[in-house]
Simulated scan of single mutants.
Amino acid sequence: LNELGYTNAYIFSVEGWPHLDTVTPQLKAKGIKNVTLMPLMMVAGDHANNDMAGDEPDSFKSQLEAEGFKVSTYIHGLGENAAVQKLFVERANESWDALEAK
């Protein structure tokens, strides 16, 4: 994302690395006050609705709010994006064609 010029975009993982604890100090160091959480998932399901944007104290939204950030959420999976849908179908067709060629 940085190479594409998105210098204020950060990615962290629900169950892996980098984690929110890795990203939060970077946000603070840049003086960022407003955060929009968006799932990098095909479908915005349980992880997006609960782990990311839920009202429980351990959700990413709640953790960031506790650190003083104003947090908004965008609960839409990548599968809703027409360009991603097109890419998915293209790759599926390429895979099918490769199987038929054998």
Rank of each mutant, 00 (worst) to 15 (best):
Glu100Thr: 11
Val84Tyr: 02
Pro39Glu: 02
Val84Asn: 00
Ser59Cys: 05
Ser72His: 05
Glu56Phe: 06
Gly45Pro: 06
Glu15Lys: 11
Ile32Asp: 08
Glu94Tyr: 01
His19Ser: 15
Asn50Ala: 03
Ala83Tyr: 07
Ile11Tyr: 12
Glu3Phe: 10
Leu37His: 02
Lys28Leu: 11
Asn81Cys: 07
Leu99Gly: 13
Phe69Arg: 00
Lys70Asn: 11
Gly54Trp: 00
Asn93Gly: 04
Glu56Ser: 07
Met52Ser: 05
Leu20Ser: 10
Asn49Glu: 06
Pro18Gly: 11
Thr73Pro: 01
Val84His: 07
Met38Gly: 02
Thr24Gln: 13
Ala98Gly: 10
Thr24Tyr: 12
Ser95Gly: 09
Asp21Lys: 05
Arg91Trp: 10
Asp58Phe: 01
Asp58Asn: 10
Ala9Asn: 08
Val89Thr: 08
Gly77Glu: 01
Asn34Phe: 03
Arg91Gln: 14
Trp96Phe: 13
Gln85Thr: 01
Tyr6Glu: 09
Pro25Met: 13
Lys70Met: 06
Asp55His: 05
Phe88Gln: 03
His76Gln: 09
Leu20Arg: 08
Val89Arg: 06
Tyr10Ala: 12
Gly77Leu: 02
Gly79Leu: 04
Phe12Ser: 14
Gly79Met: 09
Phe88Trp: 07
Leu37Asn: 00
Thr24Arg: 14
Lys102Phe: 10
Asn34Ile: 04
Ala66Ser: 13
Ser95Met: 11
Leu1Met: 15
Glu65Val: 01
Asn34Pro: 03
Asn81Phe: 04
Asn50Pro: 02
Ala53Ile: 00
Lys102Tyr: 07
Asn34Lys: 14
Asn8Ile: 05
His76Ile: 00
Glu100Ile: 13
Gln63Leu: 15
Asp51Gly: 03
Leu4Phe: 14
Glu90Thr: 06
Thr36Cys: 08
Lys61Tyr: 03
Val43Leu: 07
Asp21Pro: 00
Lys102Pro: 02
Leu27Lys: 04
Leu78Gly: 00
Gly5Asp: 15
Asn50Gly: 04
Leu27Gln: 02
Gln85Pro: 01
Thr7Tyr: 15
Ser62Trp: 01
